[in-house]
Design a protein around this nucleic acid. Structure first.
Length: 596
RNA sequence: GGCCCGGUAGCUCAAUGGAUAGAGCAACAGCCUUCUAAGCUGUAGGUUCUUGGUUCGAUCCCAAGCCGGGUCACCA
């Protein structure tokens, strides 16, 4: 489909024929012509000046003549400085459009039996507090990445590793036992994850006041932190948990079940899901066994206090602890166990971890450790790291209460969507259920697009005061364009005009040409998003397409076009633009409304 | 301090080593009797952090520096 390789070959042949010099086609630089110049593809002639020993203009002209003579799809050329602009025949773009028309999955590659399996881990929450803005970026990126990989023909398994054990959850449990009075999500109607989060906060407050008390009694800060009754109780509880104490285990199960119910609700609202969920309480012992095997095989070292270490100094890193002196697991040990279990469960070809960039070092270490333990996939694990979401005055800090809660944020967005819709009177005449559905689609479209259009690796800023805009380069703007096109198609249908199967038109005006060019790019964009691992590629492309369409829509009528052939052609183009918006947004996990 | 990542318009963000660095928001000026104004068309806004280097050509690659962030736990 893509003309670039063919152009490159022909340019190489032209150089051979004209100047008797061998040039690899891959050395020829071709790009899309910038919109302010005439043409579709542009060949850089600068690199060939040494061979032609002629001016850029003359060289470009000679190559242009050769291409015209040898490539039917090129209808004309022009040379500006050292840029050889090639004009591709209208028929070529019409052909591309006709390929797109019948294919509902335009731009997507279907998986085959030979397709590789990629497992994507994302979300990975702790069970002691609700999800916040940072998790939202993680969840949206993870889900979108999975969709992009699917669209590139991979088999994808979405997985979530729940950090359900350890000190943090014991803290919530201790506080609930002490202050809870048997309160549950059922008795007070609170969302389970929020309820547990409240006790985590209560623990921290209590712990701090105990420390302050002990400091007044003359203890050192270190002593106070060790001796505070709350932390002592927490440690005891963790030991009991490890020892399978029935009472502690039941409390743990009960409180975790509240949290999971809450998370499920948030996941559902965000529209993300998982094929397989792992729990660290199931995997951490496997990690411990693996580490002990490593000790036996001389890969890791056990110290006299029986703690186990990996020496990664040869690899340019530090020594890393794998098991504490009391034999318990640390974070990375659990990841080793989880990895082991996953590869036992699935024939994984590629493993992607969607985890914040503050853990880059962690995954470097994990990769080396898995490699040392003899897993061939250790070296190849891919850490899809993304930047933090910051507030205008810096990081979110739970201590300062500046954490933006995921549920609150979404609810706020829905309220804004509702208010804006009502003000504009867009949905008058529709049922309440329909309206609510659209508010939800628009609100999440705004939020998701806002986050996904930014290069994942960059730290991004979110201003809760200003909320998220619905105008300009936003999800709702793109959704709006989709809704408008759907409206046109409905009206065409009502007046008895059916959208034709195939596009035919005599000539193309400038805007039509531009649109067709952008339409034909979509499959390449999906591919690029897959290799660059960036949903932002898709988001920015869809925005460009919509801008171009709106500009066209402003200049040219569709339904009121007197010439039926032109009207039909434009209907087909509009329909195809709508399809790409829909397909592109589905890669971002964003829904599109039929009307808004 | 070692390692990693950023720095582009007042703000939020784009820009496979190419042509005059682009959008949106905010500001200003226009466009609703027409297929949806959540829109469209203009104006204004830039030493792409700095200095060197490579190149026909650098926001992009290399080196050094400046600023900001992350990370180097018997935390997760």
């Amino acid at each position: 489909m893509n003309l670039e390789p063919i152009i490159k070959e022909n340019v190489a042949a032209a150089i051979k024929s004209l100047y008797d010099q061998a040039v690899e086609p891959s050395q020829v630089q071709v790009q899309l012509t910038r919109s302010e110049f005439t043409g579709d593809h542009t060949v850089m002639v600068f690199p060939f000046l040494k061979m032609s020993k002629k001016s850029p203009e003359v060289t470009g002209g000679e190559i242009g003549e050769y291409l015209i003579a040898n490539m039917k799809v090129i209808s004309s050329y022009n040379v500006v400085k050292g840029f050889l602009n090639l004009v591709i025949d209208n028929g070529y773009w019409i052909d591309r459009l006709n390929e797109a028309i019948p294919n509902e999955q335009y731009g997507f590659v279907a998986p085959t039996d030979q397709s590789e399996l990629v497992m994507i881990e994302y979300s990975s929450p702790n069970t002691n507090k609700p999800l916040h803005l940072g998790h939202i970026r993680n969840n949206l990126l993870g889900f979108s990445l999975a969709e992009v990989m699917k669209a590139n023909g991979y088999k994808v398994v979405k997985t979530n590793i729940v950090n359900d054990r350890g000190v943090h959850i014991c803290k919530s449990m201790v506080a609930w036992q002490r202050f809870g009075n048997g309160e549950t999500p059922e008795t007070n109607g609170k969302k389970g994850d929020h309820l547990v989060g409240e006790y985590y906060v209560k623990f921290d407050q209590q712990y701090k006041s105990e420390i302050a008390e002990l400091l007044e009694k003359g203890r050192s800060e270190e002593q106070a932190k060790e001796e505070a009754p709350s932390i002592v109780a927490t440690r005891e509880m963790l030991l009991k948990w490890e020892a399978n104490d029935p009472e502690v285990r039941n409390l743990w199960k009960m409180m975790n079940s509240w949290v999971y119910a809450g998370f499920d609700e948030t996941y559902k609202t965000l529209g993300v899901d998982f094929d397989k969920i792992y729990y660290e309480s199931d995997t951490y012992t496997i990690g411990r066994d693996e580490v002990l095997r490593g000790v036996k095989e001389g890969i890791f070292q056990q110290e006299s206090d029986s703690s186990v270490w990996a020496n990664l100094e040869k690899e340019g890193l530090d020594k890393k602890i794998l098991l504490r002196s009391d034999g318990t697991s640390v974070y990375i040990t659990q990841d080793i166990g989880t990895a082991q279990l996953r590869y036992r469960d699935y024939p994984i070809d590629h493993m992607i971890y969607v985890v914040g960039n503050e853990q880059i070092y962690h995954f470097q270490v994990l990769s080396l450790l898995l490699d040392k333990l003899g897993y061939k996939w250790g070296k190849d694990l891919y850490h899809f790291s993304y930047g933090m979401v910051e507030l205008p005055n810096g990081r979110m800090k739970s201590r300062e209460g500046t954490v933006v809660d995921a549920d609150d944020l979404v609810a706020g967005m829905v309220d804004v969507a509702k208010a804006v819709s009502m003000e504009l009177g867009k949905l008058d005449g529709y049922s309440e259920a329909e309206k609510e559905n659209i508010y939800h689609i628009v609100a999440l479209g705004a939020l998701k697009y806002f986050i996904l259009k930014v290069d994942p690796k960059k730290t991004m800023t979110f201003n809760p005061e200003e909320s998220i805009d619905f105008n300009g380069n936003t999800g709702p703007f793109i959704q709006y364009t989709y809704a408008r096109i759907r409206s046109i198609l409905r009206k065409a249908d009502e007046t008895g005009v059916s959208v034709p199967q195939f596009a035919q038109v005599g000539t193309l005006n400038e805007k039509e040409r531009s649109l067709l060019k952008i339409i034909s790019l979509f499959p390449d964009v999906v591919k690029e998003a897959g290799t660059a691992h960036s949903p932002a590629v898709v988001a920015n492309y869809v925005y460009d397409l919509v801008k171009e369409f709106n500009s066209f829509y402003h200049d040219h009528s569709i339904l009121n076009e007197p010439d039926n052939a032109i009207r039909d052609f434009r209907l087909v183009v509009a329909q195809t633009v709508a399809k790409i918006i829909k397909n592109g947004f589905s890669l971002l996990g964003i829904r599109v409304p039929e009307r808004m």
